[in-house]
């Protein structure tokens, strides 16, 4: 019986996690701005087909990823318009956005089934990529993997240290106070929603262009919901979102490999463990008396109307 090669496992884990990491980091910013967009799944799958279609038609994966970000952002604008200008309920609108995205992507994707997309090259760095162990784990991925980690770092730095980050957080904690200070709450939120849509679109395209890589209707199969759970799991902290995403992706990759290697393991428990961990984290955090540890933006999901 062969064992599991930890190097390929970790490399596979990173690839498996990147779609949900991208979607989660986008949603994190949206929620930090006080908006709960449950349409992540819809934006992901729209990004998946937009990216796939453009990559196939143009032959360029780069153009595909750009189109995916654009497609996700465009779809999120529907949500932004409904919730920020028409003041619709964010939960209902988000759910509707998911249904709409699934249908729209199926419609666009009719003629793209069974086609292979152009290959997204890995960025082999001379010298570094050939290193044993670290080479395959750290230095032989495609650009999007590095972009996703860079995005986490950028979001963390922006939220923590920059004036822009302070404004986003202010809008998310108390939109009335931010409004009173003269910040354009709606405009800031619309931009945050678009950022979230673009990230979700990128994550979807990573599925259809790199991880699977093909177009199949409904191919995100719930990845968007996992991304939403990760934001909560991460208690709205960017680096924790990275850990959460790698944990989810890692357990999937690990349990499949354990099975393939013939280990006798209770797969059901392993598959459900990330969800159990999420629930545990939530229980522990919410048992905190002053709820400070929960760290949820105070205005999350609340409708803002500039009258007061």
């Amino acid at each position: 019986m062969m064992g599991i090669d930890p190097v390929t496992l970790i490399a596979a884990l990173i690839v498996a996690s990147t779609p949900i990491l991208l979607a989660a980091i986008g949603e994190l910013v949206v929620e930090k701005a006080g908006v709960l967009n449950l349409g992540v799944e819809g934006m992901m799958i729209t990004g998946a087909i937009c990216g796939f279609a453009i990559a196939v038609d143009s032959g360029s994966p780069t153009l595909g990823f750009i189109a995916a970000a654009g497609g996700g952002a465009a779809l999120s604008l529907v949500f932004a318009f409904l919730t920020q200008y028409l003041l619709s309920n964010q939960v209902a609108t988000g759910l509707a956005l998911t249904l709409f995205g699934l249908g729209l992507s199926a419609l666009i994707g009719v003629s793209y089934s069974g086609i292979s997309p152009p290959v997204t090259p890995s960025l082999d760095i001379p010298g570094l990529s050939d290193m044993p162990v670290l080479g395959p784990i750290l230095f032989s991925h495609d650009a999007i993997v590095y972009l996703s980690v860079a995005l986490v770092a950028a979001v963390w730095a922006t939220l923590k240290y920059s004036r822009v980050g302070l404004i986003i957080r202010a809008v998310g904690e108390s939109h009335d106070a931010a409004h009173a200070l003269g910040y354009k709450v709606v405009r800031i939120r619309v931009l945050a929603i678009m950022f979230g849509g673009a990230c979700a679109g990128l994550g979807g395209a990573y599925l259809s262009l790199v991880r699977v890589p093909q177009w199949t209707e409904g191919m995100t199969a719930g990845a968007g919901w996992i991304a939403l759970a990760i934001v909560v799991f991460a208690s709205w902290k960017p680096w924790r979102a990275l850990i959460g995403a790698y944990l989810f992706g890692g357990i999937t990759a690990l349990q499949l490999r354990l099975q393939a290697a013939g280990f006798d393991i209770p797969v059901e428990y392993l598959s459900m463990s990330p969800y159990v961990v999420t629930i545990l984290v939530l229980v522990i955090m919410s048992s905190d008396r002053n709820r400070a540890a929960l760290n949820a933006p105070a205005s999350l999901g609340k409708v803002f109307h500039a009258t007061g």
């Binding site: 596979a12 991880r211 699977v212 191919m219 199969a221 990845a223």
Partner: peptide, 8 residues
Amino acid sequence: FDPAVEAE
């Protein structure tokens, strides 16, 4: 049906 898991 989960293309990502099936591919993995």
